[in-house]
C-alpha cells in the first residue's frame, strides 16, 4: 500500500504552505495532492503558484506522484474558470471533487481520480465512472469496511479490480459537509464577503463543542469537519488484506511527521514502535460501520 498526503483542507499562509511541503519531501509519502479544495477566497497560492509548487516538488522528488485536487463546491462562473485551468493543466493528473470536474475531465478523455466528496456508494457507479476515465477513487468518509469489501468483491468479479485504485481517508479531521455559508466568519460575526480571511487564524480549524464540552465539529470556513480526527492506523493490516491501494493522511498543522512515520512503520510491518502522535481523542467509527465519532476497536 502507498501513503498519500491529501490536499491541504485548511487555510495557511503562502510561507507556511511552502515550508510544509518542502518538509514533506523528507517524509515517506508516495503521492501528494495539491490545490485549494474548500474556498475560492483562499488565495495564498493562485493556480499558477500551485502549478509552480507542483513542478518544484516533482523536480526535487521525481518518484513522488503529484496530483492537483479541485474545488469541492462550485457556485460561481469564476470558480468554473479556475476549475477549467486545473482540468486542462496538461502536466499533472487531477482529482475531481465535484461532478463539474468529472464532466470536464471525462470530456477530454484523460484519466482522473475522485476525492471523498464525489458520491460513489456502489459498484455500478464506480464502473460507469471507470469507463469515463476514473483510475482512482477515495471512498466517501461515511462508508464502512463492509461496504468496501462488497464493492471490491464486485469489482473483482467484473475484472475491474486491477484497473481501479482504492484510497481510504485514514487520518485527520474528516470533511463532513459543505455550505454556501461561512461558519468561521459567522463565529466572528462577520459576513462572508468581509470575512477578513479569519480562517488563517485556525491552522487546524475552529473547534466546536457541545454545551457539555464534548468535541463535536471543526469549522473550516464553508466546510464542516469532524470534531475528532479519524485515525485508521490500527486498521492498516485489514486494509492491506482487502486490497486497498492507498492510505490518505490529511495535512494537519501539528505532528504531521509523527503521523506519517507511524503509518509508514505500520505499513512496513514494524512492530512494537509506539506511535509518536496524540491518539487518545481520535475516532474511527465509520470504518467499523458505527457513528463516525465513535472510537471502536
Amino acid at each position: 500500500m502507498k501513503l498519500s498526503l491529501g490536499p491541504l483542507l485548511y487555510f495557511w499562509s503562502f510561507d507556511d504552505i511552502q515550508v510544509f511541503y518542502q518538509s514533506m519531501l523528507e517524509q515517506p509519502v508516495d503521492i501528494i495532492y495539491l490545490g485549494e479544495t474548500v474556498c475560492s477566497k483562499r488565495r495564498s497560492l493562485n493556480f499558477e503558484q500551485w502549478m509552480e509548487l507542483a513542478r518544484n516538488l516533482k523536480q526535487q522528488a521525481p518518484d513522488t506522484e503529484i496530483v492537483l485536487s479541485t474545488l469541492s463546491l462550485i457556485e460561481a462562473e469564476s470558480e468554473l474558470k479556475t476549475l477549467r485551468r486545473y482540468c486542462n493543466n496538461g502536466e499533472f493528473s487531477v482529482e475531481a471533487n465535484d461532478m463539474a470536474a468529472v464532466h470536464l475531465l471525462s470530456e477530454q478523455h484523460v484519466p482522473f481520480s475522485t476525492g471523498p466528496t464525489i458520491n460513489i456508494y456502489n459498484t455500478r457507479t464506480l464502473s460507469l465512472l471507470h469507463g469515463q476515465g476514473l483510475r482512482r477513487w477515495v471512498m466517501p468518509v461515511e462508508l464502512s469496511r463492509n461496504t468496501l469489501k462488497e464493492i471490491l468483491q464486485e469489482l473483482k468479479a467484473s475484472d475491474l479490480a486491477d484497473k481501479l485504485e482504492t484510497e481510504i481517508f485514514s487520518y485527520g479531521h474528516m470533511p463532513l459537509a459543505l455550505s454556501a455559508r461561512c461558519f468561521t466568519a459567522r463565529a466572528h460575526n462577520l459576513p462572508k464577503d468581509q470575512c477578513d480571511l479569519k480562517c488563517l487564524e485556525y491552522p487546524d480549524g475552529l473547534q466546536v463543542k457541545s454545551q457539555e464540552e464534548q468535541s463535536l465539529f471543526t469549522l473550516n470556513g464553508i466546510q464542516t469537519m469532524s470534531g475528532q480526527r479519524n485515525d485508521l492506523l490500527d486498521a492498516l493490516p485489514e486494509m492491506q488484506s482487502m486490497g486497498v491501494d492507498i492510505v490518505r493522511l490529511s495535512p494537519q498543522a501539528m505532528q504531521m511527521p509523527e503521523v506519517i512515520q507511524a503509518y509508514h512503520n505500520a505499513l512496513k510491518g514494524k512492530e512494537g514502535i509506539t506511535a509518536g502522535y496524540a491518539r487518545d481523542e481520535n475516532c474511527n467509527g465509520y470504518w467499523y460501520g458505527e457513528p463516525g465519532m465513535y472510537q471502536s476497536m
Partner: peptide
C-alpha cells in the same frame, strides 16, 4: 437545509445514519 444536499455527513457522524445512506 444549509449544507449542500447530498454532501452532508453530519448526521452519520453522530448517529450512524445519514440522508445519503
Amino acid at each position: 437545509c444549509i449544507m449542500a444536499e447530498g454532501r452532508c455527513h453530519l448526521s452519520s457522524y453522530v448517529t450512524g445514519e445519514s440522508p445519503n445512506t
